[in-house]
Every structure is written in C-alpha cells, then in structure tokens.
C-alpha cells in the first residue's frame, strides 16, 4: 500500500499562505486553530526561505506513543488520525511532537482544552466516511474521494507535495536534479527516519 507523506520544497515556497487558508476554510477547523502554518526565515533579506508545516504523519509517531487514552492511531497508508470522542485534551501529544502539530481549541469547561485537532491529510476521521459527523469534527475526506489534500492541491508554486511517498520523492528528485540544488526535504529525517 502507498505510504502518504508531505514534502515541502523550500526552493519553491513563496510564503503565500494559500495552504493555510485552504485548509482552514475547507476543513471546518475550530476557531484559533491552524492545522498548517508557514515558517519564513531571513524575511526581506537575502536567503529568505519558507516552509509549510503541519502534521508530518510520522513513521513511529511519538504522539501515538504518549497518548494516555489511545486516541491517536495510524492508518495503513501512514496517515495519523485522532479520535475526538476518545481524546481527553491532556496535551501530551503536543509535548511529544517535534513539529508542534497538535492544536487545541479553547473555551471548554473552566477554559480547559477541548479535543486535539490536527491535520488529517484531508482523510476525515474515524467517524463514518462522508458522514455529517466526520465533516463537522474532522473536515473533508478528500482521500476517500481520490483527491490530494487541499493544501497541496491549492499550492500555487507546487512547492507542497502530498501523496504516495515514492511518487512525490521522485518528482522532488527530478526537480533537484534539474536545478542542481535543494537535494533534501526538510523534516523527512525527523518524521520518517528512512522508513
């Protein structure tokens, strides 16, 4: 089975934040939560580069390991999802994540955090596929529709690639070869560790 991964080509990302908006608008994301964010270095100076970051859907994901209630699980295609009915909002996944992916809406009982929200790779959630509950809690299920995640589909420079790891790394390899630079994908060593 194909292993789904994200790859952001920092030579192409132009910090337009289209991915962030597309994800937020298309996925019914709670107020105060951004599932994806763009980080820019050397802004306005030579050497400016940007990278778009969300949940990397790690192999051997630390969030799954630390969750005290087993609310997080990994699909066979590598997509990491959270079950919001089980999540207690303790925040351990946020502490474990190297990418700062898990997000929490506020405004529950006594200002306590609600269930964790994070990038679903636009694969919905554990609720019934295409159900109203899935749409409300987790957003679209574009993977089940055979479409790529909103962020990557929306990316104007095609910096953000999402999909079968073999296919996207092949595209990236060709690009790097053609332009003779950027032969690395930020975060891949941390998230996938050669797997």
């Amino acid at each position: 089975m194909a292993r789904m991964k994200f790859l952001c080509d920092v030579e192409r990302c132009i910090d337009c934040n289209g991915c962030v908006i597309a994800c937020k608008e298309g996925n019914n994301v709670p107020v105060g939560v951004n599932r994806r964010r763009v980080i820019t270095i050397n802004e306005g100076r030579p050497g400016e580069r940007s990278v778009s970051i969300s949940c990397m859907h790690c192999s051997d994901a630390p969030c799954i390991a630390v969750c005290p209630v087993k609310a997080i699980y990994q699909r066979e295609d590598g997509i990491v999802l959270v079950n919001k009915d089980i999540c207690i909002g303790c925040g351990y996944c946020f502490m474990a994540c190297p990418f700062g992916a898990p997000q929490f809406p506020s405004g529950q009982v006594f200002g306590a955090r609600g269930a964790m929200d994070k990038c679903t790779f636009c694969a919905g959630g554990p609720a019934e596929t295409f159900s109203e509950k899935e749409r409300k809690l987790y957003g679209q299920n574009r993977i089940a529709e055979g479409k790529p995640p909103l962020c990557a589909a929306m990316c104007s420079t095609k910096a953000l690639l999402a999909g079968d790891a073999d296919v996207i790394s092949d595209i990236f390899r060709k690009r790097a070869f053609q332009r003779g630079s950027g032969a690395g994908a930020w975060g891949w060593d941390k998230a996938y560790g050669g797997k």
Partner: peptide
C-alpha cells in the same frame, strides 16, 4: 555584503538548520 550573500550563496544546510531551530 549584498553581492557576497546573494540567495544562491545561502547554503540549504544553513537554511534547514534555521528551520529546525524555529520549528523543532
């Protein structure tokens, strides 16, 4: 300075290290 440190000169390794310190 501007000529010496044009975007082409900034190594990708340096950039990745900066991303890592900001994100991780």
């Amino acid at each position: 300075d501007q000529f010496l440190f044009s975007p082409g000169h900034e190594s990708i390794t340096v950039a990745f290290r900066q991303f890592s310190s900001l994100i991780v």
